[in-house]
Computed example of a mutant assay.
Amino acid sequence: MNMTRPTRLIITVLVLLAAGLLLWTPIKKLLFGTPPVAPSVLVSGNIEAHQSVLSFTEVQAPISWLPFDEGKSVQVGTVLAQVDDRLYRQQLQIDRTIMAVAQKQVAVNESNLAAVRNTVISDRLDLANKERDFVRDQSQLKINAVSQQAFDLTSTVVAQAAATLARDQALVQEARDNIDLARASLASDAAKLALDQVTLSYTVLKAPFSGVLAVREAELGELAGPGVAIFTLDDLDHVWLRAYVNETNLSQVRLGEPVAVSTDTYPDHRYHGRIGFISSEAEFTPKTVETHAERVTLVYRLRIDIDNPTHELLPGMPAEATITLLPAGK
């Protein structure tokens, strides 16, 4: 079939365009050269994680329950160990008994206060009655209706009634003071009970965060106490690489910059990280850390936070990170 001239022209243009596209890359390299690759620096160090050495505090007793071994993954709040708590439970029972006695003492003192108040009411009525007798005898004495001796006796009785009232009023204040003391004692006993409840809670060792039990340092039946390590717990969800960058490259490294991390253990896997910390103080290169660039006198510490969802990265594992160097001052 014969093609028309416009058709042949279109085909010719398409062929030339395709050839141009194929030849553009080598022609571009010939004319402009190979585009520059962003400079980078390779740093090395060791994987670190938040580690917590767990021990019992405030209590000392033999370990009675220790269900987990090394390598076990645990969630926050998981009971890891428990010591014999019989002594602490007995102390708690004693505190409850003492507190019950203190509560009864408060009730007794309140009852005493009520009784003394009733006595004061009775004393006032009695005094009022004797004062009326005194006024009547005083009038009778003026007309010689009673003897002086009888009047003197009435006066004495009034004075005695007044003294009795004053004494019982003082007993009211004493009863109030006794109630205050009993309530203060009750509050002290309640505080002691609460403290012993807290102490009892220390007989149970719980995981402060989710992680992996890296080291088990105690056995069932051993005496546990403050400062005696039971477990070392690693938080493998949040690991980082401690590395050092030369002073000459410091101005080309940025916080939050993405970093590719690799390890000898998994050489074909690249872990995603980011620079989470750059030290503001220079230090001499640690003997255990070497940079791949020429060693200089001063270096700056970096913390490269790494995603570790599968818990492949473990504390102490050597690793390397490739950091792209950015233009200085930008």
Rank of each mutant, 00 (worst) to 15 (best):
N2F: 10
P6V: 06
P6D: 08
I11D: 07
G20R: 10
T25K: 15
V37K: 14
V37G: 01
P39I: 02
P39M: 05
S40Y: 08
V43E: 02
V43W: 04
G45W: 01
G45M: 04
N46L: 13
V59W: 03
V59Y: 06
I63M: 03
D69F: 07
G77W: 10
T78Q: 05
V79K: 13
A81G: 04
V83N: 05
L92G: 08
L92C: 01
D95V: 03
D95H: 13
T97Q: 13
T97P: 01
T97G: 12
I98T: 06
I98D: 12
A102T: 10
A102F: 07
Q103T: 07
Q105D: 10
V106C: 05
A107K: 11
L113F: 11
T119F: 09
V120Q: 02
S122L: 08
A128I: 05
K130T: 08
V135C: 02
D137V: 01
Q138F: 07
Q140Y: 14
Q140K: 12
K142A: 11
K142N: 04
Q149G: 05
A150K: 14
F151M: 09
S155K: 15
S155W: 08
T156P: 00
V157A: 15
A161I: 04
D168W: 10
D168P: 13
R176G: 06
N178Q: 10
D180K: 11
R183Y: 12
R183L: 15
K192N: 10
L193P: 00
L193G: 03
A194T: 12
L195V: 01
Q197P: 02
V198K: 08
T203L: 02
K206P: 00
F209C: 01
V215S: 06
R216Q: 12
E219L: 13
E222F: 03
G225K: 13
V228H: 08
A229S: 12
I230S: 07
F231I: 10
T232P: 03
D234W: 15
D235H: 12
L236S: 01
R242E: 06
R242F: 00
T248E: 05
L250V: 10
S251G: 05
R254I: 02
T265R: 13
Y266V: 04
D268Y: 02
F277W: 12
I278C: 09
S280N: 09
E281T: 15
A282L: 07
F284C: 05
T285K: 08
E290D: 13
E290A: 15
E290M: 09
T291S: 13
E294N: 15
E294Y: 10
R301Q: 08
I304E: 00
I304D: 00
N308K: 05
P309N: 03
H311D: 06
L313H: 03
P315D: 00
M317Q: 02
M317V: 00
E320V: 12
E320C: 01
E320H: 12
I323G: 06
T324N: 07
T324R: 13
P327M: 12
A328S: 14
